[in-house]
Structures are given as structure tokens and as C-alpha cells.
Write a protein that binds this DNA or RNA. Sequence first.
DNA 1: AAATTGTTCTTCGTATACACTTTTGCCGGA
DNA 2: TCCGGCAAAAGTGTATACGAAGAACAATTT
Lengths: 226, 226
Amino acid sequence: MAEDLRDKLGAQHLPLRDQVLTALRTAIIDGDYLPGERLTEDRLAEDFGVSRNPVREALRVAEAEGFVVILPRRGAVVASPSSGTIGDMFAVRERLETLAARLAAERASAADVAALRALLDQGREATERQDLPRVAELNSALHLRILQISGNPWLSSIAKSLYLHVQWVFRLGAEQRAPHSWAEHIQLVDAIESGDGDRAERAALAHLDAASTAAYENAEGGYGVR
Amino acid sequence: MAEDLRDKLGAQHLPLRDQVLTALRTAIIDGDYLPGERLTEDRLAEDFGVSRNPVREALRVAEAEGFVVILPRRGAVVASPSSGTIGDMFAVRERLETLAARLAAERASAADVAALRALLDQGREATERQDLPRVAELNSALHLRILQISGNPWLSSIAKSLYLHVQWVFRLGAEQRAPHSWAEHIQLVDAIESGDGDRAERAALAHLDAASTAAYENAEGGYGVR
DNA sequence: AAATTGTTCTTCGTATACACTTTTGCCGGA
DNA sequence: TCCGGCAAAAGTGTATACGAAGAACAATTT
């Protein structure tokens, strides 16, 4: 297979639309654009220093990912994660991530485990520094890594968009939970290292239940602007 | 809240990009564009009778949904569902749809059940007529309806894109299974109507296991063109 | 035969134009 | 003062053109 070569040919080129999409997502996740806020194409184009075309294309993808809502002829607004949505999100995570934990336990290499441990360390350290944005980021990174180790591309791709929302919710609200969260992560990684699928699934479930109740308590009422 | 009114104001307007996206998806699902086939913007614009702008925006979304792969500066090709992907897809479906079945059983109204029964009838009839494209469509419609009844928007939105792929795989390969599939569907709907979450979950699991082994046997090797 | 060059195709981004819709703000009248 | 309606402004949706840059491919040279 010469595909490895061909994939690399034009690979270093990052289209503007992708950069815009990334910038837009992080702006929303970080709260620079608040839920309910109106996003006109001209404004975004100016904010990011590009023309309308890349902005439009990025907006379509952002809509598909659920970060903005587009109303025909009326434009885009930042989506509002409701507390209902949050509960639903955890129900889905529970199903998906228990599977991921099981698969990861069955397939994880030593290098995989080492990578997880590294993230664990960084997370503990960031928690001690009270660097919450970084903690949120590392939280996502750890879970995504497990998803990736599971080796199921569907799991990964679904979770990728899901996790941006998880991070969003994490940042917007339940930040106090960070220390507990990282303690549970250690259990989870231990279980994955052990290679015991059942145990890993149980650990993931415990973690998610705890996170769920915490997030739920914390997010009474929406975060919206309007 | 006056939102109900505002949502309806410009709602009947379907932007060209959405029409293009729909047409593109169905063309891929129906095999008009085969896996590996090259899709230039000009060609699509001509095929659908629009300018390149809507095509570009539709392509970005199609990429996010996994129907096409876009290589920077080289353009888009129709994605190729591998047999590995198919197995992974079913693993995810198993987790997601058992949850959906449980929730649907707990929440389904009489009208919901009636709608499912109607789809069941149409499916049986289409199966008898050997109208396989229609069967595939109704298969998706039934499952999506259950997802929707579950009331979990994440489940619905994830499944929406997942199901287009399910239908794709269904059409490309394992078509013979239709009759068995519809028999199992009846069990599933019965279970949902009973309101017994456990039973519904078991029925969904049984259906998915059967579909999975069938699809797996049928799809040895890829479908690709290149 | 291998390497180089040059041509062509295509994408990527920008800019511009214009129709149409929604929103807004103003104005006159009750 | 408040209301309704009307006109201007803002913004989206679509089309089109253009230039730059990359990739593919054929021709040419070594």
C-alpha cells in the first residue's frame, strides 16, 4: 500500500475553514461566545480575518456538531446546552464509554497505558495548580485517548464531537469536581492496565455516575444569555 | 415564550446547500456514486444544477458525517466502508439502540406505538414486493423512530448520521436478510408497547446480534471501486 | 530508464453583486 | 402614550469571476 505516502502529500496544508472551525469551537467552549449569542457571518469573518466563504463552511460543520443553531435566512446563534441535554449526554456517555473502557482494557498496549499514566500525571498537576481550563482539556484528552485505544472508529468519531460538548459543560459549570474526577481516573486506568474488561467497564460506570450527579446538581437552569 | 412563532418564520425555506447535501447522501447511499469515486466540485455543481458555493458547504458536512473524505487541495472522494468498520458500527449500535429501546418502552405513547406499527406494515408490504431500496429506507425509518421516541436528543442526532451509514451498508450488501429483519422488528415493537424496558432491551439486542452476524458474513472484503 | 519540465486540472480563498427576508426604527394617528 | 404600519437597514442565500497554489499527468530531456 502506497497510501501512506499519498496521504502525506498535501497533508500539511490546513485549509482556512478548518482553522476557523477550530477557532470557533474553542471560542464557544471557552465562553468567548456565549450561548444564545448571535453570530453574523460578517462579524466572524472580521474576527478571524478571513472572507465569508470559509466562515460559512465552518458554520455548517459547527451546526452539524451542535455548537450553533442555524435558522434559515436568520443566521447562526450559539447553541444553548440545557440541563436536560446534560442528563441525556451522560446517558449516552455511559453506554459508549463503558464499551470503550472494556475494549481498551482488552487491547491496550504497554505504550497505551504509559500514555494514559502521563495524562494522569499532568491532570493531577494541573488540578493542584487550580488551572481549571487545562484540567478540562486534560479530562477530555484522557477520555478521548481511551476511546481511541478502544480501536473502534465509530466510537472515536462520535465521541470526538460529544467530548467538545462535555468539555463545554465542564467549563461552564461543574468545575469544583476536578479533584474527585482525577481520583476516579486513576481507578479507571488501573483497571484498563489490568486487562480485565469487566473491571474496566465497572470503573468507567462508577466514574460516569459520579460525574453525572455532580454535573446535574450544578447545572440547575440553563446558562443562556437571552 | 414566543419562540414557537419565531421558529416558524423562515422555516419553510430550504437552502440549496441542504438540498444538495440530501441529494449527495442519497446518491452515495443508493450507489450512484461508488466508494472511491472522485467528486469534483464542478461536476457536483453541474449534476445538481447549482453553483459551486452550496456544493462546497454540503461537502464539508458530508465529510463531517463520514460519507466523503476530503484531501486538502485534492478534493473529495466517496468514503469506503470497510468490513472492519461494519463490525465496529454494530458494536456501537448495540450500546446505543438497547438504550433507545429501553427509553422508548418507558416513554412511548399510544400514538408512538401506532406510528411504529404503521411502519411495520409498510415494511412487511415492501418486503413482499421485493422493493429492497424501500425496505432499507423503512428499516432506517423504524429504528430512527424508536431513537426519536426515546426522547434523548444525543441519541437521535448521533443515530441520524449513523443510520445513513447503516442504510448504506444494508443497500450495498446484506439485502437477503430483509424478511428475518422484519420478523424481529415485530418482537421489538411488541416489547416497546408492553412498556417493559428490560424486555425491549433484550429484543433490541437479539435483533442487532442477528443483523450483525448476517452483515458480517455478507461483507467479506470491501465494496470499493479503486 | 530516470529525472525534469511544463501543462492542465482542481481546489482554496477572495471579492463582488444582487435578490430576498428579517429586523429595526421611525412616523403618524388613535 | 401606545399602537400599527411602512420604509430603510442589515443579513443571508446564491451566483459568478478571478488569482494563487498544489497535484496530476504528459512530454521532454538527459
